Amino acid sequence: MIRLLADPLRQQIVELLADGPACTCHLVDDTGAKQPTVSHHLKVLREAGLVESEPYGRFTYYRLVPESLDAAAAELTALAGRARSNAGERRAC
């Protein structure tokens, strides 16, 4: 998940989709990126399960999958807890 959102354009797309479903043309307008680039990033996000697509007339709308974000947040929270618990532990050399 971190690697997915490390890309600035993917992060921007995710933030835009947090405001509701959008089609590629909306995301192209909002990001200023070219259509093939936006489509590529949507494909990556879709394959990772972070975004779903839905046909609507001639267009395809994309929306975030909140459960995927919840799962990622839970993993990061657990990782932070482990780091807190083990902050004073040093492995022997």
Rank of each mutant, 00 (worst) to 15 (best):
M1R: 05
M1K: 01
I2R: 13
R3S: 13
R3V: 10
L4I: 04
L4T: 00
L5Q: 04
L5W: 05
A6N: 13
D7H: 14
P8H: 01
Q11M: 15
Q11S: 15
I13L: 15
I13V: 11
V14D: 10
E15I: 06
E15Q: 13
L16K: 01
L16A: 01
L16C: 00
L17Y: 05
L17F: 07
A18Q: 10
A18I: 02
G20I: 04
G20N: 03
P21F: 08
A22W: 04
A22T: 00
H26C: 06
L27M: 10
L27R: 01
V28R: 03
D29R: 11
D30W: 11
G32N: 06
G32E: 06
G32Q: 05
G32K: 02
A33I: 02
A33Y: 01
A33L: 02
K34W: 04
Q35H: 08
T37C: 07
T37V: 13
T37Y: 13
T37A: 12
T37N: 14
T37P: 04
V38S: 00
V38N: 00
H40D: 12
H40L: 15
L42V: 02
L45W: 05
L45D: 05
L45F: 08
L45K: 01
R46S: 14
E47M: 10
G49H: 07
E52I: 05
S53Q: 12
P55Y: 00
Y56E: 14
G57A: 04
G57N: 01
G57V: 01
G57F: 03
R58M: 05
T60N: 06
T60I: 12
T60V: 13
T60G: 00
Y61W: 08
Y61L: 14
R63C: 08
R63D: 11
R63W: 02
L64F: 04
L64G: 02
V65L: 09
S68K: 10
S68N: 04
L69C: 09
L69F: 15
D70W: 11
D70P: 01
A71L: 14
A71N: 09
A71K: 09
A73S: 12
A73M: 12
A73T: 08
A73I: 06
A74T: 07
A74K: 07
A74L: 13
A74G: 06
A74E: 15
L76V: 09
T77C: 11
A78H: 10
A80N: 07
R82C: 09
R82Y: 13
A83L: 14
A83Y: 03
R84V: 11
S85C: 06
N86I: 00
G88H: 02
E89V: 02
R90G: 00
A92S: 09
A92F: 11
A92I: 08
C93R: 10
